[in-house]
């Protein structure tokens, strides 16, 4: 049996799409990739043989896919099975990930705020009230209308930056840069990838007010949900955080 190039490309692409949504250890991912590839080859071969052909063509592969489940559904099937075998992440690894996120965020947003704010400060120095404090710190206060507008712009930038960093990125990928560095993934309780809705709900204590809320929520996890390792807002969003390459002992 042979396979045409476009049929092979479609098949490989489909398997990759499925595996992309499966958050497990790499060795297991490779095994799943091989097994699913073999599965779709077998199905396509049956179609080609039914046509009396010795070559698997694009039409065979397409017919198999039309008959098969959605890639996300197959990935979910695997994750339902794997989720209980993945180790839940505790307060330590999650706390470190959060600190890393804060450092990265403050650095990036600091640069952006400076780049937007500094030109106004130097072009319209009269609009700002600059005070030199005893400790050597410089305190800049908006005074004129342009400066007030600039402050508002900068405040909005910080807020949008926070929403993008902690909610959009996590909702899209299932991890923030800090979590990625520590090998953590946010999943739904059933093991599937989270979406934006879950990302919004579980991150409310991070983006609202100051850091008091997230600390309270983390304490809630230690006191009430230590076994499941879920913060209060994880409970509401029905999400969990796991080590993507550590098996439960």
């Amino acid at each position: 049996m042979e396979i045409s190039d476009d049929a092979k490309a479609r098949l490989t692409n489909r398997v990759n799409r499925i595996v992309a949504d499966i958050d497990v250890y790499e060795a297991e991912k490779k095994e799943i990739t091989r097994e699913l590839t073999s599965n779709f080859y077998d199905r396509s071969m049956t179609r080609a043989m039914a046509r009396g052909s010795k070559i698997i063509e694009k039409q065979d592969v397409d017919a198999v896919f039309a008959d098969s489940e959605d890639p996300k559904e197959i990935a979910a099937g695997y994750m339902h099975t794997y989720v209980s075998s993945l180790q839940r992440a505790g307060i330590l690894s999650r706390g470190i990930a959060y600190l890393i996120d804060l450092i990265i965020f403050v650095l990036i947003i600091g640069i952006i705020v400076f780049m937007i704010g500094a030109p106004f400060y130097f072009i319209f120095p009269d609009q700002f009230n600059t005070r030199f404090l005893d400790g050597g710190d410089i305190f800049v206060e908006p005074e004129g209308p342009i400066a007030v507008l600039v402050s508002f712009l900068l405040g909005t930038t910080v807020l949008i930056g926070m929403l993008v960093y902690f909610i959009v990125i996590e909702g899209r990928f299932g991890f923030t840069p800090g979590k990625w560095l520590l090998g953590l993934r946010v999943l739904r309780e059933d093991g599937t990838r989270i979406g934006y809705v879950e990302a919004i709900i579980r991150n409310i204590p991070k983006v609202v007010g100051n850091s008091v809320f997230i600390v309270i929520d983390a304490l809630l996890m230690l006191l009430l949900f230590n076994k499941e390792k879920q913060r209060g807002f994880d409970k509401i969003a029905r999400t969990i955080v796991v080590h993507k390459s550590k098996k439960e002992e």
Binding site: N39, I74, G77, Y82, S85
Partner: peptide
Amino acid sequence: IKESNAYPALHSMES
């Protein structure tokens, strides 16, 4: 049985 059911079941049976 579909792929989403068959293969994960085989994996869990193996473990």
